[in-house]
C-alpha cells in the first residue's frame, strides 16, 4: 500500500534536516504503529506524506499503491486515498463542519469520477457515522473545530476519516487528549474501518491505544529514521522501559 524509501527531508527555510532516510513499508490491510521520542520526526513524516508546504524532500520516494505521492498536490493525495488525522486539528471559523465534510466528500468523489452525493443522502450517512462517534448535531453545525474540546477535535478527525473512506490512514497521536471512554470510541471507529483493503499508520506514544487498535507491526522512530521494527511486543517493551536501551543500541542518546 505505502512504500517509503530512503526519505530525506529538510526544512525549506532553514538548513535543518529532520528526516534522515526513512524506510517503511505498510502492506495492504495491515496496521502499523510508529512510536518514538518527542521531536524524532513522526509528525514531519505524516505532513510530508500529505503534502504540507515548508519541507524540502532532498532524497527518496513515497509510493501509494505504486504512485509517487511526493509529486502530487495535497488534494490529489487525498483523492488517491491518503488521509491524515492531524495531531493538532485546525480550527476554521466561519465554515460549518457539515459544509466542510460535504465539500470534502464531494470533491473527492468528483476527482474519482463519481457522482456527488445529494444533500439528503449525505445527511443520512453523516448522522449515522456521527452517532457512533457520539458527535452530536450541535457539533456538526458549528464551525470546523472551533471551540471543540481536545477530545472532540480528535473524534471529529475520525468522523472525517469515516466519511472519506481513505485507503491509507495516518493517525498522528489521535489518542492524545482523549479520556478513557473517548479513546474506546475512537478505537472502535478505527477498528470498524479496518478491512483487507485499508491500511493504517498509527503514531502514538502509548501502549494504551494499541491495546484497542492491535497493530501488526510496530516501528520505533528516532532522530529522523526508523531504528527498529518489531511486533506488538515492541510497544510493550517501550511502555515498560522507555527508549533509553533502544536508543543506546543505535548509538543515540536520549537528548536527540
Amino acid at each position: 500500500m505505502l512504500e517509503i524509501k530512503n526519505l530525506h527531508v529538510k526544512l525549506e527555510e532553514e538548513d535543518k534536516v529532520i528526516l534522515k532516510g526513512v524506510n517503511l513499508t505498510v502492506e495492504t490491510g495491515k496496521v502499523h504503529a510508529i512510536m518514538g521520542p518527542n521531536g524524532s520526526g513522526k509528525s514531519t513524516l505524516s505532513y510530508v506524506l500529505s503534502g504540507r508546504d515548508g519541507y524540502e524532500v532532498t532524497d527518496g520516494s513515497a509510493l501509494l499503491e505504486g504512485e509517487e505521492l511526493l509529486e502530487m498536490e495535497p488534494e490529489e493525495r487525498a483523492a488517491a486515498g491518503l488521509f491524515l488525522a492531524f495531531q493538532y486539528p485546525v480550527e476554521i471559523p466561519g465554515v460549518g463542519n457539515m459544509t466542510f465534510l460535504r465539500t470534502a466528500l464531494n470533491a473527492q468523489r468528483k476527482a474519482r469520477g463519481q457522482d456527488e452525493l445529494s444533500a439528503g443522502e449525505f445527511l443520512k450517512v453523516v448522522r449515522e457515522k456521527a452517532k457512533t462517534l457520539k458527535i452530536d448535531a450541535d457539533m456538526l453545525k458549528r464551525p470546523v473545530n472551533v471551540g471543540f474540546s481536545g477530545g472532540e477535535k480528535k473524534r471529529n478527525e475520525i468522523l472525517q476519516m469515516a466519511m472519506l473512506e481513505p485507503k491509507m490512514c495516518i493517525l498522528d497521536e489521535t489518542d492524545s487528549g482523549l479520556d478513557v471512554d473517548a479513546m474506546r470510541l475512537v478505537a472502535d471507529g478505527v477498528n470498524a474501518l479496518r478491512d483487507a483493503g485499508r491500511s493504517f499508520l498509527v503514531i502514538t506514544h502509548y501502549q494504551r491505544l494499541l491495546d484497542h487498535i492491535k497493530p501488526d507491526v510496530v516501528h520505533i522512530m528516532a532522530d529522523g529514521r526508523i531504528i527498529q521494527t518489531g511486533g506488538p511486543e515492541l510497544a510493550l517493551e517501550v511502555e515498560q522501559n522507555g527508549y533509553a536501551d533502544i536508543l543506546k543500541a543505535h548509538g543515540l542518546t536520549e537528548a536527540v
Binding site: E73, G94, F100, A104, A111, L164
Partner: peptide, 26 residues
C-alpha cells in the same frame, strides 16, 4: 494552515481558498 487542512481532505486549492474567503466574510 487552514488551506492545507482543507486540501488534505481533498478540496482543490481554489475551492478551498473560496471557502476560506466565505468564512472570513461570514
Amino acid at each position: 494552515t487552514a488551506l492545507f487542512y482543507l486540501r488534505s481532505r481533498g478540496v482543490p486549492m481554489e475551492e478551498a481558498r473560496g471557502l476560506l474567503v466565505l468564512s472570513f466574510l461570514a
